[in-house]
């Protein structure tokens, strides 16, 4: 009950809308922030959010999930190469939308896959998120050595064609992704909950974002995706996400059931 008042306050004051997110999830994140900040009750955190802008943005960071990896679910990327790349090859120009890109790992993964398939030069990747701090980090394309080990393994599991280290330059404890991977990525602030269609695209990837939304919001965002795809365009969801409860299910055919890859019917 009280959490919903807090979310209402965040929306009214800052325009970020978490009112249709999973309540159990939001509850955990808010309580964690309260524990870290020594706040004991919800009404107290609500007034702090309204008075203290810095604290409010801290809470926004807490509510924005930036957990991601390069080539997360290698089987998914194998399926992309097998089932989706041949479709993309039929277009003279390709537009791809990574919705909810967080710190950019999936957009870089896509850029690598497209380079290997000789498609990157005719592609524009729109990588969007509502979290500007995450977008700024994505733009830099700097990742810690610690995670690169894991990404390298994922890259090998998805049967990448080169050595993964050829895609970045090492520097001390981090790596910088090659400039050639960044050149066709457009990083943009877009909020799936409150913003609308901004382009017609051939491929949308939105993986493990919709699981945070309630049914109504899922349906609304599915509609946004449907309206953003060209006929024959491809939609990729997370491994536990589906179109089952969406009214749009029959408007897609299934390209890969297990990897949740769907094709919009003409």
């Amino acid at each position: 009950m009280e959490i919903s008042l807090l979310l209402e306050a965040v929306y009214q004051k800052y325009g970020y809308d978490f009112r249709q997110y999973s309540q159990a999830h939001i509850g955990r994140r808010v309580r964690n922030r309260m524990a870290l900040s020594g706040i004991n009750d919800i009404s107290q955190i609500q007034s702090k959010v309204l008075e203290d802008k810095e604290f409010a943005y801290q809470l926004l960071q807490d509510l924005s999930i930036t957990v991601t990896e390069m080539f997360r679910d290698p089987e998914f990327y194998k399926s992309l190469r097998k089932n989706v790349i041949p479709i993309l090859k039929t277009y003279p120009f390709i537009k791809i939308w990574h919705a909810g890109c967080a710190t950019g790992e999936e957009a870089y993964s896509m850029a690598i896959l497209l380079q290997e398939e000789g498609l990157y030069d005719r592609t524009t990747i729109y990588a969007t998120d509502f979290n500007q701090l995450a977008l700024n980090r994505a733009k830099e394309g700097i990742f810690s050595n610690k995670v690169i080990k894991e990404y390298t393994l994922n890259y090998q599991l998805m049967e990448g064609k080169k050595s993964f280290s050829s895609y970045y330059t090492s520097s001390y404890d981090h790596v910088i992704m090659n400039q050639s991977l960044k050149k066709n990525i457009v990083w943009a602030n877009h909020n799936l909950v409150t913003d609308s269609v901004f382009a017609e695209v051939n491929l949308i990837l939105c993986r493990n974002v919709l699981i945070y939304f309630d049914h109504d919001l899922q349906n609304k965002v599915q509609k946004l995706f449907y309206n953003s795809l060209i006929g024959g365009g491809v939609l990729c969801l997370g491994s536990k996400e589906s179109l089952h409860f969406s009214t749009l299910e029959e408007k897609y055919s299934v390209l890969d059931k297990n990897q949740r890859i769907f094709k919009k019917k003409y």
């Binding site: 999973s22 309540q23 159990a24 999830h25 955990r28 994140r29 999930i65 957990v67 493990n208 699981i211 945070y212 997370g238 536990k240």
Partner: peptide
């Protein structure tokens, strides 16, 4: 719970999955 996802229970006795830390 499926591998690599947190499993949460909502007030309406349904499941949520997340990929939080």
């Amino acid at each position: 719970a499926p591998p690599n996802y947190h499993l949460l229970i909502e007030k309406n006795k349904t499941f949520s999955l997340t990929i939080d830390e």
